[in-house]
């Protein structure tokens, strides 16, 4: 048949093109598809893991990294980006991959702590000396305060920002959903630019000089502070915020096909080791192992699984789907 005649050479070409090597070989390549703020963390971590793996098995492991907005990265994996592991900003995005059958259901139970080896939260980055005296969430809705956050529709981090503000308002005396929505609406009235990703927002705040306060991942805020000048910015930790759990998982279908399951699982487990936790702490993530020292301030943290949100699936539907509270806020604002 004609078909076979074409298929054979095509397959040969494909194998030649294919970059993933078989697991038996001494050289293993993993692809870790992650979200924006983890670049520096994984650059460090991959080096450490490669050394660990070499000493343990004698194999050389090269971990390739791909970074982008969490939703975009999840979509790429769904569309066939050959990720052995994903380390994304929120469980909702990994759920979307699982929905397509690439990951076993119940993936979040595979590893401890909802498969989140480190956590983070949302804090404020303000200009040096905090000229607008921003201490807590209710300072953000004051007139004349300009707030920078990315778009919750396109950025995982921004969804945490949104929910953190919501949770704060909800837990104020006499707080309810209506009041929370009003609070968040007021906050977004103070937002002049909605970048599509967390890094875009940081650039807007830092490079363009826009805004009085940037809502950011805690690790992003400290990274920006260190990279771009401790003399220019301050980090303000509010009294309460949300517990952001960026989960990790093996993409079963891909890892099994590449024969990389074992190393992929070890890679993720290594995140939970003392060494992995130290690296996370160094990059201003909150290690889940409480014995690892961290300089990060303690604060009251609400979680996405609280009754107020009811998990990612529900939160996404209520707040960020078309017609959700975020759209309502912008629909009513003329």
């Amino acid at each position: 048949m004609k078909f076979k005649q074409i298929a054979l050479p095509l397959a040969a070409i494909a194998m030649a093109l294919s970059t993933a090597t078989a697991a038996l070989a001494a050289n293993v390549t993993l692809l870790n598809v992650s979200y924006d703020p983890t670049r520096e963390l994984y650059t460090d971590f991959n080096k450490s893991f490669a050394a660990y793996w070499k000493s343990k098995t004698g194999d050389t492991v090269t971990v390739k990294q791909s970074h982008g907005g969490s939703g975009k990265q999840a979509r790429s994996v769904i569309d066939g980006l050959q990720a052995d592991v994903v380390t994304l900003a929120l469980a909702y995005d990994i759920d979307a991959i699982a929905e397509k059958g690439l990951i076993k259901t119940g993936w979040q139970k595979e590893l401890p702590h909802n498969s989140s080896p480190y956590t983070s939260t949302i804090v404020f980055l303000v200009r040096k000396g905090n000229p607008k005296k921003i201490k807590n969430w209710d300072d953000l809705i004051k007139p004349g305060v300009s707030v920078i956050t990315p778009n919750p529709k396109t950025s995982g981090g921004a969804r945490w920002n949104y929910l953190a503000a919501w949770a704060f308002a909800l837990h104020q005396p006499g707080g309810n959903d209506a009041k929370a929505k009003e609070f968040v609406a007021k906050l977004f009235k103070n937002v002049p630019v909605l970048d599509s990703g967390a890094r875009g927002s940081t650039n807007t705040f830092v490079q363009r000089g826009l805004g009085d306060v940037l809502l950011a991942w805690e690790n992003e805020a400290f990274l920006a502070l260190n990279e771009l000048g401790p003399d220019k910015f301050d980090v303000v930790t509010p009294s309460e915020s949300i517990l952001a759990e960026p989960p990790v998982t093996v993409i079963d279908k891909v890892a099994d096909k590449h024969g990389t399951r074992r190393v992929a699982e070890e890679y993720l487990k290594y995140l939970y080791s003392d060494e992995g936790q130290k690296i996370a702490a160094k990059h201003y993530y909150r290690p889940i192992n409480t014995k690892i020292p961290t300089k990060l301030a303690k604060l009251k943290l609400y979680t996405i699984d609280d009754k107020a949100f009811g998990g990612w699936q529900k939160a996404q539907k209520t707040h960020f789907a078309d017609g959700g509270t975020f759209d309502q806020i912008y629909g009513s604002k003329k």
Binding site: A7, L10, A11, I13, A14, M15, L17, S18, S76, I78, D79, G80, L81, Q82, K100, K257
Partner: peptide, 20 residues
Amino acid sequence: FGLQGWLGPWLQEHDIRIVF
């Protein structure tokens, strides 16, 4: 060519990468 697209599953089966 994506995994959810027309040719995606076939390409995947034969380990041919077009997108990404």
